[in-house]
């Protein structure tokens, strides 16, 4: 078992997630964009999709399945980009127009 399959890795990932949430919250506050629960929920779902895409590519490279890694990267990556654009427009709902 390597570091990236260990409990320590997921512990560190957990810390990263906490830092991301705090940093993102402050970033949105600075832009006066409100973040009700549904926005956090949608964001969380998108992060899962994004994480799935990265892990999918890595796993298939590790399995020596380059075609699956490439196709999966393109298909799921495109889905992640398109949904990111849509998500950003949703996140902007309620933004203070003066800013």
């Amino acid at each position: 078992m390597s570091f990236f399959n260990s409990g320590l890795f997921w512990f560190i990932q957990g810390i990263f997630v906490c830092l991301i949430v705090v940093g993102f919250k402050i970033w949105m506050e600075d832009r006066e964009i409100p973040m009700p629960f549904w926005k956090w929920l949608l964001l969380g779902i998108w992060v899962l999709l994004f994480g799935f895409t990265i892990a999918f590519v890595g796993t298939n490279l590790g399995e020596k399945e380059p075609q699956a890694a490439l196709l999966g990267g393109i298909v799921f990556g495109l889905i992640a980009i398109i949904t990111a654009v849509g998500l950003w427009r949703l996140l902007l709902i309620g933004k203070n127009p003066k800013k």
């Binding site: 390597s2 990236f4 560190i12 991301i20 705090v22 890595g58």
Partner: peptide, 28 residues
């Protein structure tokens, strides 16, 4: 805190990639 959050997002994403790679090749 914003910079740390952005760095965490980058490191976390790279980490997920490595996790996937290890999960794919792991003999276990």
């Amino acid at each position: 805190l914003k910079t740390t959050g952005a760095a965490s997002a980058a490191l976390g994403s790279v980490g997920l990639g490595f996790f996937g790679y290890e999960a794919g090749r792991d003999p276990e």
